[in-house]
Design a binder for these strands. Structure first.
Lengths: 218, 218
DNA sequence: CGTTGTGAAGGAGTTCACAGCA
DNA sequence: TGCTGTGAACTCCTTCACAACG
């Protein structure tokens, strides 16, 4: 256990550990050794122990980690002790799917609002939510004290929308837009590009063998 | 330019470069310096040059990189010279969105088949495709010579399905399943977990400042 | 005794800085 | 002159290996 900053690579794995722990708890398991955790997460034991050591977590030597305690610890570290409100901007195909995706709900988030610019979809019902006009963005963010946004709009409109989200007070953005988007240093942006992922796979498929069986990183 | 293996981190950036180049070509730009490419991609010039050097690509000193030539070079490296067939397994909310997502089509892939296990969706029309029974998996893979699969099914059924895909001859899998899935060494699996991405953002949002403005890696 | 927590070694990826060339 | 291509330095991450300890 150290106290400086937690390495980015470690942060990216914490949700995976949490997931494994919640499944173990579900199954009635009370203690897991780093070895077990590693197997279930797809890493190795040394990495698991080092990662957890950054949290200052203490397992029990000769025994392992208490499943419930560690899950709580991870939830706390990730800021998931209570449900976080998220605003979803863009209700096209992908946006609709994201709105219907219950993984968000089940893993600590809820959609506080769905926004779109197209008059044709405004006021429409999507996955049980009423789509609101992007004009309401600023008021929605303030009203629900939102700091997380999911962006699923066309590339052409994306940068201005990012600027607007940032100005409104959003601190972190999950972008599905296939373009580089600039944000200030104090705002975090993660980009998920589905076509890019397939293209990476395409590379390894033809090169045959040897791809690092991956996950998202950094 | 070297000739060994291309670093995983570099491979993950190649699609981004390609995207930038195609947009530049679209805009009529014929030459880009590493500096320009870097700005558009969100990296820095040294990284761009080193990445490209692994391809054995030669830019022109004092000038930059020929946009068309480099785009072709990258397409070749990524195995995108011709459209690649992909099989999509799982036509739930996410699967439907993926089927409707035109980014795949526009960036070198086409869905050769949509499969699902639920009798209620079989033969249904989704995004213009007729959903087929998973039973047809093996024949579809052989018939279309498919090596890429996209997996969007519940975690519980995922590992057996992965084994089946691999046995059928699939060499690379893009998984949206929020669980670790095992594949043999000669098969590549990339995992995209949307809730995980949000949880990572949640961490940085609360920690305030300092997150490495990211993209998918490895 | 078994498993954690961690220094230290090793490996991967990034950035620097400059020589080399169009 | 201007920008590429790249060795070398550096930083970040992973893995090893073992002492510490319940």
């Amino acid at each position: 256990m150290r106290d400086g900053r937690i390495p980015a690579a470690t942060v990216a794995r914490l949700p995976v550990y949490l997931q494994v722990l919640l499944e173990a708890a579900e199954a009635g398991v009370e203690v897991l050794a780093s070895e077990d955790l590693a197997r279930a997460a797809g890493y190795n034991a040394a990495k698991v122990r080092k990662d957890l050591s950054y949290l200052g977590t203490h397992g029990t030597r000769g025994v392992g980690y208490d499943v419930d305690a560690l899950a709580r610890e991870l939830s706390r570290a990730l800021g998931l002790l209570e449900d976080r409100p998220v605003v979803l901007v863009g209700v096209g195909n992908l946006g609709r799917a994201l709105a219907s995706y219950d993984g968000f709900r089940r893993r600590g988030f809820h959609l506080a609002a769905l926004l779109d610019a197209a008059p044709s979809v405004i006021d429409q019902d999507v996955a049980g939510y009423r789509v609101r006009a992007v004009e309401e963005l600023e008021s929605v963010v303030v009203e629900h004290d939102i700091s997380l946004a999911v962006l699923a709009i066309p590339a052409a409109q994306a940068q201005p929308m990012v600027d607007r989200l940032v100005a409104a007070g959003v601190r972190a953005i999950l972008s599905f837009v296939p373009t580089h988007l600039a944000v200030p240093d104090d705002v975090t942006l993660r980009r998920v590009d589905l076509a890019t992922e397939l293209q990476i796979l395409s590379f390894y498929e033809q090169v045959v063998v040897d791809a690092p069986t991956t996950t998202t990183t950094t």
